[in-house]
Design a protein around this nucleic acid. Structure first.
Lengths: 231, 231
DNA sequence: TTGGAATTGTCCATTTCGCGACAATTGTAT
DNA sequence: ATACAATTGTCGCGAAATGGACAATTCCAA
């Protein structure tokens, strides 16, 4: 159930291959590389917590995590999953506000942490970094609008389909395998639908040939089909 | 039921007082002013249509419109309302894709249209315009994430409350009156809840003193209370 | 002033989902 | 190999929203 990229990537490798780093000058890149640090997180542990001051911009080197928010009612809502190659937290950094949701490791994960100061320095110095952020925010906005639209217009099965497809956004998360090691309960949190109902939807989507269901996760067979379902 | 600003603002006045124009140079502003045009729209008419190529960046000078999306199933979902002072469409312009949702005038509205070429020119020339866009996209992203979070975590009444509060975002839509001339059916589209259920929620919120319900719309009495409801 | 259109308030039947429960299955650590 | 934990598959009940229907109200224009 592992990703197919068996080679475990280094911190600097992850930084250099990140899509936001290709437009940086040598000087800028050097500054990034000298300040970014790596940290490991066990499954279930909190990478960052709602309400904390925002100290870092986070990148997933290896593993998988989710951004989620809990209510005092006990309910939990996962907003999105972040696979390797994904970076998050720029929103709160830009607004210089406290963090608005939790980051939770779903598996053993290695994270790259860029200090806020470096992030803001890039923001002030690099035009290409600005352009990257613009693209990233725009893409994420599109993702959430699409999600909301689905919630309003589509039936439950199609919502599950789109939500799964969302996790494979090629702009936000480049070069991802087709396997997603996520439990159906977690998919329930991601979609906002009960586990039992997700289970039924997955079976329907499997019968229709869009994906295949296995014990610890699912495999996407027809990504484009999932996206377009019910639209 | 009109806004309290009785003076009808001019096109150039709207441009010059827009929050994205204050950082522009004389030259940049001149280029904007010589290319931006004005157009009027009757209630119910389409300002822009899903699927069209994106030719303009739109600003609301006067009136009110909604961004929405219809499904072939006949359902309709309003994504957000845009009051005077609000600008939209930058997402599709940045991606140079076809338009992803309809813009519909809810009342007689006067719109400012900035040609795509001018928009892209600003994007390439003005740092402050880039920064504005970053802020705008970030704010909008926050808005939609908040909306999605509400949908997952909160009960129906609180969702209606937050959705209404969303329409008064001071960053996206500065200087707005407390009256919102929108039918309950429209609020249903905006919240993704049936008109009948919205009706009940509004009455509850009114009894709790957060707003007051009148024939053609509502008046906000406690904006901060609406925002924080159920959190 | 009056008629018609839009909007609101309320009823109810139907649909759908959430949630608790529990057995069956699969994976993992000892 | 075996026990234990995590996950999946499936029921059924109760709660809640949807959507149709229709009367009452309000607004607007002739």
């Amino acid at each position: 159930m592992d990703n197919s990229n068996t080679k475990s990537p280094s911190l600097l490798g992850a930084v250099r291959s990140a899509s936001w780093s290709i437009g940086l000058t040598q000087e800028e890149l050097a500054r990034v590389e000298s300040t970014v640090i790596e940290r490991r997180f066990a499954p279930g542990s909190l990478v960052c917590r709602k309400g904390e001051p925002v100290e870092y911009w986070y990148g997933v080197i290896e593993g998988l995590l989710k951004l989620s928010s809990d209510a005092e009612s006990g309910k939990t809502a996962s907003l999105t999953g972040v696979p390797p190659g994904g970076w998050f937290g720029e929103g709160s950094l830009l607004k210089s506000e406290i963090r608005r949701y939790d980051g939770v490791a779903l598996r053993d994960s290695r994270m790259a942490l860029m200090p806020r100061q470096t992030f803001l320095w890039l923001l002030d110095h690099s035009i290409s970094f600005n352009r990257y952020l613009l693209t990233q925010l725009n893409e994420r906005l599109g993702q959430f609008i699409c999600l909301l639209e689905s919630e309003r217009l589509l039936d439950t099965d199609a919502r599950v389909a789109r939500c799964v497809a969302t996790l494979f956004n090629p702009v936000l998360y480049p070069g991802l395998s087709r396997k997603l090691a996520v439990s159906q309960e977690e998919l329930g949190y991601l979609t906002g639908i009960s586990r039992q109902r997700v289970n039924r939807s997955l079976k329907i989507l499997q019968d229709a040939g869009y994906l295949s269901v296995a014990y610890g996760g699912i495999t996407i067979l027809n990504l484009d089909g999932l996206r377009k379902l019910g639209s």
